[in-house]
Design a protein around this nucleic acid. Structure first.
Lengths: 331, 331
DNA sequence: AATCGTATTCGAAACGTTTCGATAAAACGC
DNA sequence: GCGTTTTATCGAAACGTTTCGAATACGATT
């Protein structure tokens, strides 16, 4: 491979001169610089990343960790992060899995975004303690090197519950999420608050894991004890889709008719469901962009202002008013 | 940050001894090694990635480039690649966008998998010429440092077309893909072959871009000239879903009744469409695993056997026989 | 006691950059 | 034509590792 030395030899100058020329320093004469650039080009020179990173102690690389690559979740989030980073000269690197955690303490990135429950809080605090800059999207963590950009889970869950309540069902099911997941806990807390102030309605909790199959299982539970139209709030869309699938495959219950279903996340497949899945939407792209922005501030040592990402209700045919209630309360 | 030097000082040995100890060399005494390891641990030592890569001239990192992070396409592919790589001690790094192409000639990875039309053939050949090892998933490229793992696009497209033909429609639309995309060209070639040997049927080509919106536009074309039940083969599912959406939103034409739709890729949202989207399936996970395996062989300098990934038809309610034809040809 | 072999440790060079401080050469003021 | 400043280039050290060849120590062999 051609290195800076080869260029120096061919141009008859020292390697430091080449380095300055390559980096566009003012110190060296314009003509010399041009000659060097030309030779570098001719030789197809590209600097050795590791060497440069070792010396400069920065990589212009940002890592992002996700629990898994699957799901419909991540595409636009990543896009948001990447666009913002590129604008500032950084590149994004996507990682998944415990194995690759090592890249962080090995100082591969200048900073890291985490949306990955495989990290423990301790682990992240340890990296921060070593000086690594982090933005976390799935937990709250107090450390000068960590910032968080959190979704307004509580507002979203309240929105969803209230939407169901407005339709007038007598029973509402809530399909939960993993107990250790921050967003699940937040959503659930809001759910409980809404429950507490709505005494007339019967609420039932069904455990869930945020995965499609747990929604599927919840579908069975609900179908088995079905006796009248009910509302169902799945703490994410993935489970709502699983639930829909169960009803479709094994029962004659209609979503939007017998079972009124709302999810959370507004993932794409929900939009193709028929009837369309009601859900809570937030801009993943924006979430990503804000996360990137915060991380760059952290890297530059700028003061950080914690950020929050807002949510909104998206109605869909999967939740419809009870016909009789509609008559009773025409507004 | 704590380096090997700090350990050496604390342990009262030379840095080379520390290095050997850390790497588990036989050369050094067991007790010394243990003492060094303990100190390293106590100091929270993690080797500096860039330094190590510079010296060792290998990174144990594999890059994969995708055109974009979105779509439903990539999740299981990435999973397949990652699992296979991890098994062999490598880590996977996902990249997207021109900007990050630089990571390849900068020698960040030991090898790279490409499924990204933003690379030109020349660019890839240039990297190969520099000694970089590549596996390409979206083109054919002859070079000793490049291997390809190709999908059997032709077989898939034939399967799709024949499935439509068997149902007995008099007209079949084909929604195309980008002209410069290898897979689109392959699929189209097979389509043409099937057309040529099926003279009784009327075929119409509609241009497409592999993106949802072009399917949507094709939906309009088809609806505008609708006069009898027709088959439609969209060269990928994404477009098929767009087409479905158009019909749903703007017409009373029913998929599986008036318009008989088949796609290609078996992406997840197609499975939630109602009626379910008929499509061509292949194991993305396996495709990824094979690609990873081939790349590792390339890195190890093992002889490579070109690989191919097979496809199968997945039937769905979006394609149904014509009722009268069914009577005519009961088998 | 001199030699050898083996086991353990060490010193130094190297990987490919960047960058500080020095040097040499040219331009300036007087 | 002498000091002084400016401009362009260079040498060398450093970043944190790995690894080759050498050095040391020590017991065993003669």
């Amino acid at each position: 491979m051609t290195s800076i030395k080869d260029i120096a030899k061919k141009a008859g100058v020292s390697i430091s001169t080449v380095s300055y020329a390559l980096n566009g320093s003012e110190r060296i004469m314009k003509e010399t610089a041009e000659r060097i650039l030309a030779i570098a080009d001719e030789l197809g020179y590209v600097p050795h990343g590791a060497a440069r990173r070792l010396k400069k102690r920065e990589s212009m690389l940002v890592g992002i960790y996700l629990t898994n690559y699957g799901g419909h979740f991540y595409g636009s989030l990543l896009q948001g992060v990447k666009d913002e980073l590129n604008r500032r000269g950084y590149d994004l690197i996507v990682c998944s899995g415990m194995r690759s955690h090592r890249l962080i303490p090995e100082r591969t990135f200048d900073g890291t975004i985490v949306l990955d429950s495989e990290f423990t809080d301790e682990e992240l605090l340890d990296y921060a303690e070593r000086g690594h800059k982090l933005v976390v999207l799935d937990r709250e963590l107090a450390h000068p090197h960590i910032n968080q950009v959190l979704l307004d889970n509580k507002a979203g869950a309240s929105l969803a519950m209230e939407h169901l309540l407005e339709q007038g069902y007598e029973r509402i099911y809530v399909v939960g999420g993993p107990e250790d997941a921050y967003d699940a806990r937040q959503r659930l807390r809001a759910v409980r608050q809404v429950m507490d102030r709505s005494p007339g309605t019967e609420f039932r909790m069904i455990p869930g894991s945020f995965q499609k199959k747990s929604g599927y299982a919840a579908g069975k539970t609900i179908a088995d004890e079905y006796d009248r139209p009910s509302g169902v709030f799945c703490l994410n869309d993935e489970m709502a889709i699983g639930l829909y699938e169960y009803l479709e495959e094994h029962t004659s219950l209609q979503v939007g008719e017998h079972v009124h279903l709302i999810g959370f996340d507004n993932i794409e497949p929900g939009r193709y469901m028929r009837p369309k899945l009601a859900t809570i939407d937030y801009s993943l792209t924006k979430w990503g962009a804000v996360a990137a922005e915060q991380l760059l501030k952290l890297i530059d040592g700028e003061p950080l202002e914690p950020e929050r990402v807002y949510v909104r209700l998206v109605e869909g045919g999967s939740v419809r008013p009870l016909p009789d209630k509609k008559q009773e309360q025409p507004n």
